[in-house]
Amino acid sequence: MSKQIQVSGLDAYYGGHKAIEDVSMTIEPRSITAFIGPSGCGKSTFLRTLNRMHEVIPGARVEGKVLLDGEDLYAANVEPVSVRRMIGMVFQRPNPFPTMSIYENVAAGLRLNGRVAKSEMDGVVETSLKGANLWNEVKDRLNKPGAGLSGGQQQRLCIARAIAVQPQVLLMDEPCSALDPISTLAIEDLMAKLKDDYTIVIVTHNMQQAARVSDRTAFFNLTAQGKPGKVVEMDETSRMFTNPTEKATEDYITGRFG
């Protein structure tokens, strides 16, 4: 249930402002692709175009093509709602629904698609929480509010919520930036496990993290302030971090700017 994403000639706008320009890339299934780059370079914006979350912001729009196993997500007859059902997302700050229990949080996505038998739902919740390495910590308090968990646990709960609907792709927007190092490690371990089943895309500010977890890395940058962001270089992560082709990539990775 893992699919390939092909992007070609993609521009994204906020009103009149062009945030990213002419992005083309292929994201392979069953692998982790990392986006790195300085703040404001459009990597998060680009991530949000992959599940049509970008257009949620008033005035935001997208031009270009995003193909999921050959099918254009931006075709006229495709609804954003069904795209998001296929492509899950984990956000920068853990955002479990505060009024729902742990169980209900995980079940939330599934319940959208109609009635599910209790036993089946129990099974999905357990599988998802196990999949997110959280089951053992919460199995005795599934009916407690999700907001009562620690930050790292909340983020894993959000991952469980995202994988409960069995998406094709999992997008992660700086999922560890609000977490402590131990929780970060737990998430990174989880990602390594999840890539057996999912296409994973992660935006990160942390270059060590990109180097540790990802198979391929794309470096985003903007030529000048106020100009749209572009992909400077994309390659195998090992190659990117040892022997980048572009000068800008090397400067960024070695900490000379950004």
Binding site: N51, M53, V56, V81, S82, R84, R85, M86, G88, M89, F91, N95, P96, F97, A108, G109, L112, C158, R161, A162, V165
Partner: peptide, 9 residues
């Protein structure tokens, strides 16, 4: 956003 990303209308 979490709800929308789950595929909610």
């Amino acid at each position: 956003e979490a709800a929308l990303a789950l595929g909610a209308t």
